[in-house]
Design a protein around this nucleic acid. Structure first.
Lengths: 236, 236
DNA sequence: ATCAAAAACTGATTTATGTCATTTTTTTTG
DNA sequence: CAAAAAAAATGACATAAATCAGTTTTTGAT
């Protein structure tokens, strides 16, 4: 992780749109000038479960997995955070240590907003508060949908769901022949849907046989989007 | 469901403490005078998935299950809301229809805060916004913990967890001999932890054989709280 | 380009839990 | 209080997915 030169929040497309666009000028400038930009390589830790929060993080570019570690060392990914999303809000608000860990899953640029600046914004800007409320309620909506899947869907359905989510949200890399692909380990995929990597591999194999995806090493090519939708909706 | 006479929000212990205590006088009075008190019998619907939100609900007394219906009619309880908790916030904020349904699981009194009053509060009271933010972030924390359980714990562990939660939060009724008991259907218990009622019954049977609980009809008596904790923490 | 480490993959086996069918008991309602 | 409806309980069976143990392939670092 290394600091980068300053940069206005106005040029940070997605985060600006979702969180900061309605914040009035004085508060916006405070934010823009106080934030610290940091660059992380793939697989770097941003913060750790149990650590003390000093501020909040806002992703400028890249992806971060947010996860919890179970007793037996099994990791569960509660969320994959992307451009324009905030991380570490709960810990700041509650004053408790982080309840989750965060690690990059690709090269990522993150802005850090120190605690005192964050609280100045919440005191002074109702618009900022309302944006935070909306952001949290979206996270909650997603969490509830995923609870339902974990509770009542089969692994293959959850896998199809996860692939759809990933391909829609990941601006995935494109291959020379302009085919979309995902670059994610079977292990991370397993921890996202609550299963073992062997089981992920087996179902990816089935989908490959059915012509829905193609696999080349770690890369997963999505060939038939509507085939994935069918799997995610119906049993088996 | 029937309306009741007005009543100040100041006397509504838990909700007052968690949400409204820091709201300044003018806004507090607006809230207190505008809310509508309604009484619901056990098993009444408060709102339905897909319905349009006209305001938010705040539980004065009683319990409400918040649930989603899967394609196959299987219901998943995302949360059991209790005294002082809000319901229906996401739908109001997003303007979308309710993404969940709500039904009482005991006789319950609920205050209804009309949409326009709610928005006046969010415009005028930063303290109100901050309380909402804190409330949502607690819901999110719980949702994440339950996601982890659903993804990585066995049914018996989740059942033990659920019993602990219920007995701690439900001010459960006491029997003549002053033993705590829960009065909840096996069906609701199953839908809370994502399993079938038969499986719940079987594991309750095991716990009964081990002297951790006693069962009398629908009633579940908690005999050994630390026994439940052990089950919830360790496999098998 | 090479090599070590990590990840992907495969097969055999076990286990937890779902499903179905039926009986008994409890709860609810008139 | 009795009858009807709902829920609890039980057994047999089917199956999804975990686990274990091993091989092959890919990846990432030098």
């Amino acid at each position: 992780m290394k600091p980068s030169p300053a940069h206005s929040c106005k040029n940070c497309g997605k985060a600006y749109d979702t969180i900061f666009s309605k914040v009035a000028a004085p508060e916006f400038n405070l934010l823009s000038e106080s934030k610290l930009i940091r660059h992380y390589n793939n697989r770097e830790i941003v913060f750790n479960e149990g650590g003390k929060a000093q501020g909040i993080f806002c992703i400028r570019e890249g992806k971060v997995k947010i996860y919890k570690n179970g007793i037996d060392g099994i990791e569960h990914i509660t969320r994959i955070a992307m451009q324009g999303e905030l991380m570490g809000i709960k810990a700041i608000l509650s004053g408790h240590p982080y309840s989750v860990s965060a690690a990059t899953i690709e090269d990522t640029t993150i802005c850090f907003i120190p605690k005192n600046i964050f609280f100045q914004l919440t005191f002074r800007s109702p618009q900022f508060n309302q944006a935070i409320i909306l952001f949290l309620s979206n996270l909650l909506e997603n969490a509830e949908t995923r609870m339902l899947s974990l509770a009542h869907k089969h692994v293959k359905q959850r896998l199809a769901e996860a692939l759809i989510f990933l391909v829609q949200n990941f601006n995935p890399a494109t291959y020379p022949n302009s085919k979309l692909y995902l670059n994610i380990t079977r292990h991370d995929l397993a921890n996202l849907i609550g299963t073992s990597s062997e089981t992920v591999i087996r179902f990816l194999g089935e989908m490959k046989d059915d012509g829905i995806i193609a696999v080349k090493g770690r890369k997963i090519f999505i060939l038939d989007h509507s085939g994935l939708s069918k799997i995610s909706a119906f049993p088996h």
